[in-house]
């Protein structure tokens, strides 16, 4: 009797866990699906003319086709390359510069206003200035995005060093570490979490500025160029597909940086 009732008692509990699992897995998909459904609903209800808003299926199908057979992949490649070059410039110059400035608080205070000012200035406002100096070349798009990355990275690295825990520095000193050793073994590591905040913001900003620059600084390649051209010649499906590709690139860059961040700076927040 006792034995016989057991499976029956267990069954509802099991069913409940079985039901709960797939719901949990599906949760992150609900938002995007709802978005696509809403998009489709707007198209089906003819609220917006089809020439302005193609259906999600048509857009996604076009995107895949343009990536595989068309020139979308090469445009995306150009945009990513420019973004990475700008980022590399900003990071390679900005991290050492920020760490150097941050380790000398007096020097940092003297340039703090400049960095804060240019960091707060919309980079897009400087595009004409950069056109004057660099012309409408490829280098220009990289230069202006690189400049923005440089400011963000420098600022964050400097703050990372300046906000290093005093106790750790004292601990290293009392253990007999020289100032070079304190810098290499403590300050540099202490600044890493904040430096990474700078690098993550930097890569996002680089993509934003590169896409804007591709729209407004004469270019014949890149997603920014493709988006603005799609709008002007009313190839809206191409425009929407390019926007989605740009979004995917931004998202992936962010994910990659988050993964590197949690791997490399395993101690952060602990």
């Amino acid at each position: 009797m006792n034995v016989a009732t057991r499976p029956a008692e267990r069954a509802p509990a099991l069913a409940a866990t079985r039901l709960r699992l797939p719901v949990g897995v599906l949760l992150p998909v609900i938002g995007p699906l709802a978005f696509l459904a809403l998009w489709q609903a707007v198209c089906s209800a003819h609220v917006v003319r089809e020439v302005l808003l193609p259906t999600p299926f048509a857009t996604l199908a076009y995107m895949v086709d343009a990536l595989v057979h068309g020139t979308m992949a090469s445009d995306a490649f150009v945009t990513v390359t420019r973004t990475l070059l700008a980022f590399a410039f900003g990071a390679i110059v900005g991290v050492p510069l920020g760490v150097a400035l941050g380790s000398n608080a007096r020097v940092y205070r003297s340039v703090e206003f400049l960095i804060d000012f240019f960091r707060s200035t919309p980079a897009s406002a400087l595009i004409p200035l950069f056109i004057l100096f660099f012309g409408i070349s490829d280098a220009n798009k990289i230069a202006i995005a690189g400049f923005s990355v440089l400011l963000i990275v420098t600022f964050n690295s400097a703050y990372g060093v300046m906000n290093a825990r005093k106790t750790r520095i004292l601990a290293a000193k009392v253990m007999g570490a020289s100032s070079v050793q304190v810098f290499r073994d403590v300050l540099l590591y202490e600044s890493l979490p904040q430096t990474f905040v700078g690098l993550r913001n930097g890569i996002s900003t680089a993509l934003v500025i590169v896409v804007v620059a591709e729209m407004f600084i004469g270019s014949d390649q890149g997603l920014g160029h493709r988006i603005i051209e799609g709008e002007q010649v009313l190839q809206v499906t191409d425009m929407y597909a390019s926007i989605i590709v740009a979004g995917i690139i931004g998202y992936l860059l962010n994910v990659v940086f988050m993964l590197i961040d949690t791997r490399l700076i395993h101690w952060s927040g602990k």
């Binding site: 601990a171 073994d185 403590v186 890493l192």
Partner: peptide, 9 residues
């Protein structure tokens, strides 16, 4: 405070 004096890296 050991948390602030040890090197977590």
């Amino acid at each position: 405070n050991y948390r602030e004096s040890l090197f977590p890296w």
